[in-house]
Design a binder for these strands. Structure first.
Lengths: 207, 207
DNA sequence: CCAATAGTGAAACATGTGTGCTAAAAAAGA
DNA sequence: TCTTTTTTAGCACACATGTTTCACTATTGG
């Protein structure tokens, strides 16, 4: 038997090269040759692990989505395990910690957000990416939905707002905040993102 | 003297072709050849009006941004001219009418939003588009800022929130809502967008 | 040691791209 | 009609891309 290289590890390594290229030069420059060069592999090697460019792109898309949402889900379980705080401020903080995982607050999550945005937009016209985009949407919807559920169960929310409406607005804030932090990192920094998220959560409770 | 063709009109015609290509196939497919074909012109003709592909792209970007913001500014002046309503509901409605111009609510504005998003994302790595993106950001910031000013002047806002913070959240909601309506038109329809925008405005006044 | 085979590397092909250059066409003045 | 100048059209070159194909390497089980 020949050299044994864990194929899955190798595929993730190539995916990481895809992420780097996208972050530096954009998705349009994520050609097989550019990716191979950044990964330190030959073009033939990359093609050994991925039949198509399309297969590589969908794989990279899904890996990126999973990394983001798995982190958020980890935090979410912490939130759901612990007792719901009776204090509004503490509740905001606990929810913010979960939702912060969906914002580009450091270099790593910023890179992930860039990749996610590029793929999402590409999926609009690329049928090969459509399913992956759909799954990504569902994943963030699930995270936000469960956070909203916690907010409602806490009994700290004034009035009786429709859960769907609350989630809708919260998703919009997260998406818009993330987009702006990606496109205008100088104008919308991490502190600003954290603060705006918390302000919105606080407003949700007060309303 | 030869055939007189209004050069500016011609350039806008080509820009319109750029928009159509981007909407159907994405910015990556907006090559000079594809654009020329959709415009019903020869490659040489397009190149006669634009030195570079870069020049064409920046021009199209700026035309698109202007169309969006000019409409919003029109509505904004209506708002600023008229007397401020003393009723919260009426104020929300008046502001919503302005901000709606920044959302993809019909086919035309949807196309514009798609083009805007593609260019904004491309500007992240394309230095030739950076200035145009900067100008676009400033323009929407100005519109939103002036709406927030109206909200504050009305005296209907509870508490004394920082104008910048209010604007920040409002921009985030608009960006996020617009992005989602572009990427998932089936899930986030026009009615939903309108409703969510109004809900957010109402929450701003109540807070 | 050896042979089977996953992994690597390189060359070639067809296609699409931006751009430079050149020539035809067309229209408005003389 | 002729001339001038814009506008259009087309060719050609260099380059980048995805994909195919084939040979080569190196490792590991026997």
């Amino acid at each position: 038997m020949p050299k044994i290289v864990n194929a899955d590890d190798r595929r993730e390594l190539v995916a990481d090269a895809v992420f780097e290229v996208i972050n530096r030069q954009g998705l349009a420059q994520a050609s097989l040759r550019n990716v191979a060069e950044r990964a330190g592999l030959a073009l033939g090697s990359v093609r050994h692990y991925f039949e198509n460019q399309a297969e590589l792109m969908e794989f990279a898309f899904r890996v990126n989505s999973e990394r983001i949402h798995l982190r958020a889900l980890d935090r979410l379980e912490d939130l759901e395990q612990s007792a719901l705080p009776q204090d509004a401020g503490a509740l905001v903080e606990k929810c913010a910690v979960v939702l912060e995982e969906l914002l580009p607050l450091d270099a790593r999550s910023n890179a992930e957000a860039v990749v996610r945005t590029e793929f999402m937009l590409a999926a609009r016209t690329d049928v090969g990416l459509r399913d992956a985009a759909q799954d990504d949407y569902r994943a963030t919807g699930a995270v936000v939905g469960r956070v909203v559920l916690q907010l409602l169960e806490s009994g700290l929310m004034a009035g009786a707002p429709e859960p769907v409406d609350v989630a809708e607005r919260l998703i919009a804030v997260l998406d818009g905040l993330g987009l702006r932090m990606v496109l205008q990192p100088g104008w919308a920094g991490p502190e600003q993102g954290r603060a705006t998220l918390r302000r919105h959560l606080r407003a949700l409770l007060a309303a």
